[in-house]
Amino acid sequence: MIRIGIVGGTGYTGVELLRLLAQHPEVQVVAITSRGDAGIPVATMFPSLRRRVNLKFEDPAKANLRNCDLVFFATPNGVAMEQAPALLDAGVRVIDLAADFRIKNVAEWERWYGMRHASPEWVEKAVYGLPEYHRAAVRNARLVANPGCYPTAVQLGFMPLVEAGLVETDQLIADAKSGVSGAGRKAEIATLFAEAADNFKAYAVSGHRHLPEIQQGLSTMAGHPVGLTFVPHLTPLIRGIHATLYARIKGEADFQQLFEQCYGGEAFVDILPPGSHPDTRSVRAANVCRIAVHRPQGGNVLVVLSVIDNLVKGAAGQAVQNMNIMFGLPETEGLAQLAVLP
């Protein structure tokens, strides 16, 4: 059994990790930390985990995380860069669900996240954990930077096109919408029920923290820098991301076939039939990205629709997928859950 620790087990991604790992046949969660809730049984805070998770939250300073095979950091930005290096030096493998190790340009990261990076030497060593593109590197990684939710939906939607060089990459557009759980489990005016319900708005139009992450990934795929306009929106949903992606065509191809061939062997990317319109509830609680490809009026702009559950394929599910790859397990192990309807 793989011995697992979770740092930061009280947020939405933390409890989603617990939900998935509690059903995983090859792992044993041995430690869950929370500085503010140490000593409280996990199932007291999250009754959905009763009779499945019998641990108590521990103070991270006292938890025996070095006895784990792998530790997940489901913490705010800035925590893993302080705490992960000691575990890595002790031989523990780490998956960080925050942004601490995603952006290779440390100065760029510091500019977007507003803090000095505590362990820049590990940034270069970290593997960006988008399995559909970096699977081979993830397999041997000691430290995996789990992608953000918006970056997952956007990169998977654009990947076949930019890799093939079939679209203009200087003016890509990503118009993305997210449910309120993407903001995390915290008290914040913008995500209060009375503020978010019956409402729909764009935010961070001048620049969102996920923009440099998406540009870095797409530039790697394209082999040169890309230009991207990324506009996120907050929707009155709990879960889900819907990304509508626009790209100007510069080379003719059977685009439906291109996507089907690119993702034909992928367990967690589903290319829908021509004319489909994926919705967020078709992926709710499932580790899958559903994609549809459109060419409106046969014109020169391609429209790609990409949907994920931000807490699963956009966070905890993708982290478990990366764990499976790192330990040589079937990639689908513990991730066979179907989407929840209605």
Results as ranks from 00 to 15, higher is better:
residue 77 N to L: 00
residue 51 R to S: 08
residue 153 A to V: 13
residue 336 A to R: 04
residue 134 H to T: 09
residue 126 A to R: 03
residue 139 R to E: 15
residue 263 Y to H: 11
residue 280 T to C: 05
residue 23 Q to N: 05
residue 77 N to C: 12
residue 113 Y to E: 09
residue 50 R to F: 07
residue 138 V to T: 14
residue 269 V to W: 04
residue 141 A to F: 07
residue 334 G to S: 10
residue 287 N to K: 01
residue 189 I to A: 08
residue 274 P to W: 04
residue 326 M to R: 09
residue 38 A to M: 10
residue 115 M to D: 06
residue 324 N to M: 08
residue 169 T to C: 14
residue 214 I to R: 06
residue 154 V to D: 13
residue 258 L to H: 13
residue 289 C to N: 11
residue 292 A to Q: 07
residue 85 P to C: 00
residue 2 I to A: 14
residue 128 Y to W: 03
residue 169 T to S: 15
residue 168 E to T: 10
residue 328 G to A: 09
residue 241 I to R: 10
residue 60 P to N: 02
residue 159 M to D: 15
residue 183 A to V: 08
residue 211 L to C: 11
residue 250 K to M: 12
residue 275 G to T: 01
residue 144 V to N: 06
residue 5 G to T: 14
residue 35 R to F: 06
residue 146 N to W: 09
residue 288 V to K: 08
residue 302 L to R: 10
residue 197 A to K: 03
residue 157 G to L: 13
residue 25 P to S: 11
residue 256 Q to C: 09
residue 190 A to Y: 12
residue 307 V to A: 07
residue 330 P to A: 11
residue 60 P to R: 02
residue 300 N to D: 11
residue 44 T to L: 12
residue 242 H to V: 12
residue 325 I to N: 12
residue 234 L to V: 09
residue 128 Y to S: 02
residue 209 R to M: 12
residue 271 I to R: 03
residue 246 Y to C: 06
residue 281 R to C: 03
residue 336 A to F: 02
residue 310 N to K: 03
residue 74 A to T: 05
residue 267 A to W: 13
residue 306 S to K: 06
residue 196 A to T: 14
residue 330 P to N: 09
residue 222 A to N: 12
residue 252 E to C: 00
residue 82 E to V: 05
residue 220 T to R: 10
residue 180 V to Y: 15
residue 134 H to W: 14
residue 251 G to Y: 00
residue 6 I to D: 07
residue 268 F to C: 03
residue 181 S to H: 14
residue 62 K to P: 00
residue 135 R to Y: 09
residue 172 L to Y: 13
residue 213 E to M: 14
residue 282 S to L: 12
residue 325 I to V: 15
residue 262 C to H: 14
residue 97 L to W: 06
residue 54 N to G: 05
residue 104 K to C: 01
residue 239 R to E: 10
residue 289 C to R: 01
residue 84 A to F: 01
residue 202 A to M: 12
residue 229 T to V: 02
residue 34 S to R: 04
residue 1 M to Y: 08
residue 232 P to Q: 05
residue 106 V to E: 04
residue 58 E to Q: 08
residue 37 D to G: 00
residue 323 M to Y: 10
residue 277 H to D: 06
residue 82 E to P: 00
residue 113 Y to T: 06
residue 89 D to G: 03
residue 272 L to G: 03
residue 221 M to Y: 00
residue 191 T to H: 04
residue 192 L to I: 01
residue 236 P to D: 13
residue 37 D to V: 00
residue 272 L to H: 01
residue 6 I to C: 07
residue 272 L to W: 02
residue 136 A to D: 15
residue 70 L to T: 04
residue 283 V to S: 06
residue 96 D to A: 09
residue 205 V to S: 01
residue 207 G to R: 07
residue 229 T to P: 03
residue 23 Q to K: 03
residue 90 A to R: 01
residue 242 H to K: 12
residue 58 E to C: 06
residue 325 I to S: 12
residue 124 E to L: 08
residue 186 K to E: 12
residue 94 V to N: 07
residue 285 A to F: 07
residue 62 K to V: 08
residue 93 R to Q: 11
residue 22 A to S: 00
residue 113 Y to L: 14
residue 31 A to Q: 02
residue 73 F to C: 11
residue 89 D to P: 01
residue 305 L to G: 07
residue 5 G to F: 04
residue 42 V to M: 07
residue 184 G to D: 09
residue 120 P to Q: 06
residue 258 L to G: 14
residue 163 E to L: 14
residue 33 T to D: 08
